[in-house]
Design a protein around this nucleic acid. Structure first.
Lengths: 192, 192
DNA sequence: CTCCGATTTGATAGATCGCTCTAGCGTGAC
DNA sequence: GTCACGCTAGAGCGATCTATCAAATCGGAG
């Protein structure tokens, strides 16, 4: 069986994503993870805040890997964008509009109330932006253009997640995909 | 002085926006609003959920009015987009990255956990989309194009808010503005 | 087999949560 | 005056929250 710490982190990631940080209790986490309560404070002596920070960073890195699969240098950029948004829409539908961005919910909750956790979410977004910039630069874009395109894609995706989860419809994700494809094509056309 | 109910709703709107729904306590609300605790249940017999729903709808309609000012039929569409994003960036900076979308934080929190509140956020987003579609149709766009452009703008804005608040930078809002201007120009160029 | 550190276990403290309840205040109608 | 009613006022309920603690248990090293 997986280690207790891993089970706690996996359960926390899922509950945070669906119920938010303040909306998830530690009792609920250990129950879901089938872990003894004391183990939580054994592995995370810093309490809920430390657990939250580790889960944010870990989930962020997992999502980053997903991103890098879709934008592997060999693939076509526009196809990658379309596939990425389509995959997000599929996941959303399959999970009854529950599983979208693993950290956006927490990011909004803690942005003005908990500086260590805000920092964790900022580090994840920064890692995404840096990775996207590097990946898109391989398609011939300049540093600035690659960075702007990445930020634009991430913003469209995150915003579409908000709308799609609230409306229980994948229409926003489909529109965001079209807009992002347009942005990508425009950036490619402007290559030096 | 403003009525007690108004003070409670104003305080709730600010606290929900910054701390989230589950992250805000009713005691905290009445303290901020300088209102007696009993008054809260006098005006909102349905408790926290009723208060949340009314605040979501009220804040959503206020933001809708803001939107309609920027996209009054007389103005230029592209200028309106630029001004709207620039205004959002100003507000964010002035409030130390606290005051962004009044309902996105709550929307993500309740999307999978509280159906009445999820419905309230969905109604607000729907009202925004309908209003934007009608406003953009006046610039000569077809129904579908106007609707897609609206959804694209709202998604870019919401996503940029997530990134900007977490990163404590207005860069994402500026990038989203550029992308949205591109989308608007493309839509205008494709007019029948 | 013994020992020791790592991990498990759950009871419980102290604070806070949403919410209910009763009593009192203030003002307009008559 | 006095009655009715909208509103103020806050004590307190049971539940739940995060966090702490000491004891039980396990597994590998010597």
């Amino acid at each position: 069986m997986a280690g207790t710490k891993d089970r706690i982190m996996a359960a926390s990631a899922e509950l945070f994503r669906r119920n938010g940080y303040t909306g998830t209790g530690l009792k609920q986490i250990v129950t879901t993870a089938n872990a003894p309560f004391g183990s939580l404070y054994h592995f995370f002596p810093g309490g809920k805040e430390q657990l939250g920070a580790e889960v944010i960073r870990s989930s962020g890195m997992m999502y980053l890997q997903l991103f890098e699969i879709f934008f592997a240098p060999a693939a076509d950029l526009v196809s990658g964008v379309e596939a990425f948004f389509a995959g997000a829409a599929d996941t959303l539908r399959e999970t009854d509009y529950a599983d979208a961005c693993p950290i956006a919910t927490v990011a909004l909750e803690v942005a003005s109330t908990n500086e260590p956790l805000r920092k964790a979410t900022a580090d994840v977004f920064t890692a995404w932006i840096d990775a996207g910039t590097a990946a898109f630069a391989k398609f011939g874009l300049g540093e600035d253009a690659a960075r702007s395109l990445t930020i634009s894609l991430v913003a469209s995706l995150e915003g579409a997640f908000v709308l799609s989860r609230a409306l229980r419809s994948t229409e926003p994700l489909e529109v965001a995909s079209t807009t992002s494809v347009l942005a990508a094509k425009t950036a490619l056309a402007a290559r030096p």
